[in-house]
């Protein structure tokens, strides 16, 4: 039996294993944390929805465990589904090569729990508002350098993300400015999935914020509190309504910029064929390193200004 060792474990047993097999977890972002968390949950028997807007790049392979050299240039979400199906054919895996936003979150993030494996705060604030509104538990997880953090957000029971974190007004350290050791996502993912298993099997879960630095071997747990003036707890949803969103974002750990834009791939393919080599897949076009999806464009550039300039040159 596939799950025998897990069922023998005293905290799981047959009844809680059944709960896991009846559950669906939504993994938002299949990068370092997401690829490991997705694999652990697949092996544990949990059905999955994986969402990622990005494509596999060479520098991802150092830490993003579901991907191999042959996957470079392909959609992370689609490749993740292929690998997860090979790991466990008994679970269902839905994959969306999409940029999660206020317009599609309701149709894509359907599950019993959401695992935040993103690399930016805008998406986390969106997930928080959606989860609080729909009363879906979610787990914040993030890594940088040799350290990471996780926090369970269970609407109605714990503080929400906005009770603890403010909207950043400064650039936060990213994987490309501070680097990342490939061991820390494994620990943070393991913590995140363990908390997900506790929540899905209706057991006592950790409260508060957990910080861990694998280089220093230092673990710090902190209590967090609900804030009376928290806009989200007071049902003021700014990200979920689209009031707050940015059209141009830089991906963590790369020099790739994403610009939101509605694109007609057939027309663009014709245009680019006259200019150079175009590689077409089911989901996007690749023209000279510019990746064009139906809803957005990925451009490699050294600055925001340069990314906008390339966009204007080819896609306006």
């Amino acid at each position: 039996m596939r799950y025998l060792r897990q069922v023998i474990f005293e905290k799981i047993g047959k009844s809680k294993q059944k709960l896991l097999e009846e559950s669906t977890a939504v993994i938002i972002g299949v990068g370092a944390i997401g690829s490991i968390s997705a694999e652990l949950l697949a092996r544990a028997g949990v059905n999955l929805v994986v969402i990622d807007r990005d494509i596999v790049e060479l520098n991802n392979l150092q830490r993003q465990k579901l991907f191999e050299e042959q996957d470079i240039g392909k959609s992370k979400a689609i490749i993740a589904r292929e690998r997860l199906n090979k790991i466990n054919k008994d679970i269902s895996v839905e994959a969306y090569a999409s940029d999660l936003d206020y317009e599609n979150i309701d149709s894509l993030a359907k599950g019993d729990i959401i695992l935040d494996c993103t690399d930016n705060f805008e998406t986390r604030f969106l997930i928080n508002e959606y989860a609080v509104k729909k009363k879906i538990p979610w787990i914040y997880a993030a890594v940088i350098g040799s350290s990471g953090m996780i926090m369970n957000i269970v609407p109605g029971k714990t503080a929400c993300f906005r009770c603890v974190f403010k909207e950043p007004t400064a650039l936060l350290g990213t994987c490309d400015t501070e680097g990342i050791l490939n061991t820390i996502p494994n620990v943070i993912s393991a913590m995140q999935v363990t908390e997900a298993i506790k929540i899905l099997t209706r057991q006592v879960y950790s409260k508060g914020l957990i910080y861990y630095d694998i280089w220093a071997n230092k673990l710090i747990k902190s209590k967090v509190n609900k804030q009376n003036d928290c806009p989200v707890c007071n049902k003021k949803f700014e990200y979920l309504t689209g009031e707050k969103r940015s059209e141009l974002v830089k991906y963590c750990g790369t020099n790739t910029y994403q610009i939101k834009n509605k694109n007609n791939l057939e027309e663009l393919e014709k245009r680019f064929k006259n200019l150079g080599k175009v590689v077409k897949s089911d989901y996007y076009l690749n023209f000279d390193g510019i990746i064009i999806f139906k809803d957005r464009v990925l451009i490699k550039a050294n600055s925001k200004k340069e990314a906008k300039s390339i966009f204007d040159r080819y896609l306006r």
């Binding site: 972002g29 370092a32 935040d116 690399d119 953090m149 350290g173 963590c252 750990g253």
Partner: peptide
């Protein structure tokens, strides 16, 4: 203790 906010994923 002052923690830096962590955002990478």
């Amino acid at each position: 203790i002052i923690h830096s906010v962590v955002s990478g994923g």
